[in-house]
Design a protein around this nucleic acid. Structure first.
Lengths: 149, 149
DNA sequence: TTCTATGCAAAATGTTTGCAATCAC
DNA sequence: GTGATTGCAAACATTTTGCATAGAA
């Protein structure tokens, strides 16, 4: 049986002598209610729908705690914007991104998972993580048919 | 027999009604003399060693032309900084980055090259490109032995 | 001469930080 | 009370843009 993500976060706060504040509560709750991939800015606007008086720095700072506690993952899909997604209880996956509409699909590449260690070892690297992003055009955007420039 | 990269760039300029200026000349030459991965800022400082009066915007604008012409590649290795490398006459490769010292190794993952089309097709995507970055700690940094926090 | 390019300074972007006031425990 | 937290504004780093001047063809 697995812990609730909230619990994981609370325990992380306790363990590190950090306080549980209304802002942090609102941010985690909103974070967990929001599926998919979103920016800090988007999350902030969702949080403000219920708790209007939250500053961006608090959102950024709390997101950092969420990542450290293992509840959130921070993705860099190559847009210069950090995206966040649920991490706790989710298995590792990579992303396929539509370059027209931005739609994202998750997938797992078993072969890369297997192979990456081989490359790393070959060059004497101790692997910590990887990032695989495939870029393409999704079927809907292909139909809309703006030809690929 | 292959064209020289300079030639490719000059032809690109001509074809698009763009001028050949001393600045563009200095930037391409320096770009081609510089091996590896470097930022726009670094390239600018190399160019200025011989041609001191070059503005950053010109460097950025010219790098964009170099990428468009196929002479340069622009990489995003997850540092929020664009890195540039030689593209013309080089085959596609991915990168293995040391998270301590930043050292980069290039490799090719045949299996991903083969597999990526399968994933894309499965989700109805028409693939355009991919980005694979493996992060780890290189052998030298392992020896220096600052334990992985 | 005509259209493109340059360099500067200012804007834009997304994120981080300093700090005084405030809150959790 | 004491130390952690907040919100603001300012700082940041990187890249882009507007514009008047200068340059290529």
């Amino acid at each position: 049986m697995q812990k609730e993500p909230q619990t994981v976060f609370i325990e992380y706060l306790n363990k590190n002598g950090l306080n549980i504040t209304p802002q942090r509560r609102a941010i985690v709750e909103t974070f967990l209610e929001t599926e998919g991939h979103f920016t800090a800015e988007q999350l902030a606007s969702y949080v403000r729908e219920r708790t209007p008086e939250i500053g961006m720095s608090t959102v950024y700072r709390t997101l950092k705690l969420l990542v450290d506690s293992g509840v959130a993952d921070c993705l860099d899909l190559g847009n210069k914007v950090d995206l966040y997604e649920h991490a706790y209880g989710h298995t590792h996956h990579d992303h396929l991104v539509c370059t027209k509409c931005g739609k994202k699909v998750e997938f797992t590449c078993e072969c890369l998972e297997r192979q990456q260690g081989v490359f790393a070892a070959r060059h004497g690297y101790e692997l910590t993580r990887h990032r695989v992003v495939l870029y393409g055009i999704c079927s809907e955007c292909q139909e809309k048919g703006i030809p690929t420039a």
